[in-house]
Design a protein around this nucleic acid. Structure first.
Ligand SMILES: [Mn+2]
Ligand SMILES: [Mn+2]
Ligand SMILES: [Mn+2]
Ligand SMILES: [Mn+2]
Lengths: 218, 218
DNA sequence: TATAAAAGTTAGATTAATCTAACTTTTATT
DNA sequence: AATAAAAGTTAGATTAATCTAACTTTTATA
């Protein structure tokens, strides 16, 4: 059985080598930065994970997850997102508070618990941030890919996910009464700095380009 | 912040030095046996816990929890029992399956989670085994103390708690349709071997002395 | 292409948690 | 009280996970 630490490495690798982080390959430094560790530390751990056949790489080369490694990482991600959903929907946590606790809960080892939790939550497809929750077979519901910034003027859309899950951003969204499912109409784009003027409910608000690049919509 | 391991030592000490285990004092060997470790290992850890002022003892002497140590142990126990209750009541686990998972969940660090869980469960006083759940202030609801074996003939009583939480016993109780709250009438006691004949619902059943010493009643 | 910068690796150290084997102190039994 | 047994401690080793400092390889750029 894997340690929490090993699971965290695999999860970080999954993140770094999938769409989310942009790139398809990950190196020692990327991992170290993502996990808040030193490259030397990561290098040691990678040797162990390679030994156990969870990752694959050659000296000085890029790192990829093996099938076994990816399966574990996906399962940890499944647990993380199910717990985040539980915390929000059942225990009334706000969406900026759940991540830290889910980081711990994702390591609880009990298949029965995971499956019962999934059932209790009525088999959700997305977590509170709009991220897809992997199914028991490892398949993922489709992830929204359209950025708010790419929506044409006068078009309407629905918030599907947040690309940035930092507390500051999530709390700002809260303040603007924007959440998953909120309808937004793009009114105007300012060429000068990329700002966008949106219609949200009865309110007209102006947001930055950075903001418009951090929201995914349908 | 304490490691899971340290929390387990403190919880074991709480158990060993309270009513439950009979004795009031605990030694290195007791602790080692209870935790499935070697005395040498426990000795090392005790030095660290003493250093951190969670336990108190002198060389070759008996060990006791300090106020700080006991507070932590009680809080871990609170979490353990709340999670067991959650697993049974909300996720439909049976009472012989919850302990193992609760052993993991009891170490999740989030006061907010604990308090929200308590609220969600409607502030339960007892866990699925009839053990009292400590309140946030550390106070415990009263624990049942009457053994089924001490109930007089022709007296009726209600099952309040199990003294033995092993799977075999819990599953046996299940099979006999006996759970917390079940009404039992003591019909007869066999002097030869201490067996007891009980009336449970419409059934008349005979149980061993060991059995009668493992159930607590009101 | 030569060299500097970035990325990755190795060596050596530290801390927590565990073990075995040997030793010391306390307690129980003759 | 003497001695045997039990309980507790110490010494020395191991493994996982981390670090710093120094070194090597790869990549970028002048
Ligand atoms: Mn984690
Ligand atoms: Mn999430
Ligand atoms: Mn535990
Ligand atoms: Mn219990």
């Amino acid at each position: 059985m894997l340690s929490n630490t090993e699971e965290n490495y695999l999860k970080a690798l999954l993140y770094l080598t999938t769409d989310e982080a942009g790139k398809k390959e990950a190196g020692t430094n990327d991992l170290a930065a993502h996990l808040g560790l030193k490259p030397a530390t990561v290098n040691d751990m990678l040797k162990r994970l390679k030994e156990k056949a969870y990752v694959s790489y050659k000296k000085y080369g890029k790192i990829t997850l093996t099938r076994a490694g990816r399966d574990i990482a996906v399962f940890v991600m499944r647990k993380h997102r199910l717990w985040e959903t539980f915390l929000c929907e059942v225990l009334a946590f706000s969406w900026d508070e759940v991540h830290e606790v889910a980081e711990q809960l994702e390591h609880i080892q009990s298949d029965k618990l995971t499956e019962r939790l999934d059932k209790f939550l009525n088999y959700p497809d997305y977590d509170p941030h709009g991220d897809p929750i992997p199914k028991p077979n490892g398949k993922m519901p489709p992830r929204a890919t359209t950025l708010l910034s790419s929506v044409a003027i006068q078009q309407s859309c629905t918030v599907a996910a947040v690309k940035d899950t930092s507390s500051v951003f999530l709390q700002y969204l809260e303040q603007l009464s924007i959440g998953i499912g909120t309808k937004i109409r793009v009114m105007e784009k300012i060429s000068f700095d990329g700002s966008v003027i949106l219609q949200v409910g009865k309110e007209k608000i102006t947001v930055s380009e950075k903001f418009a690049n951090s929201l995914l919509v349908d």
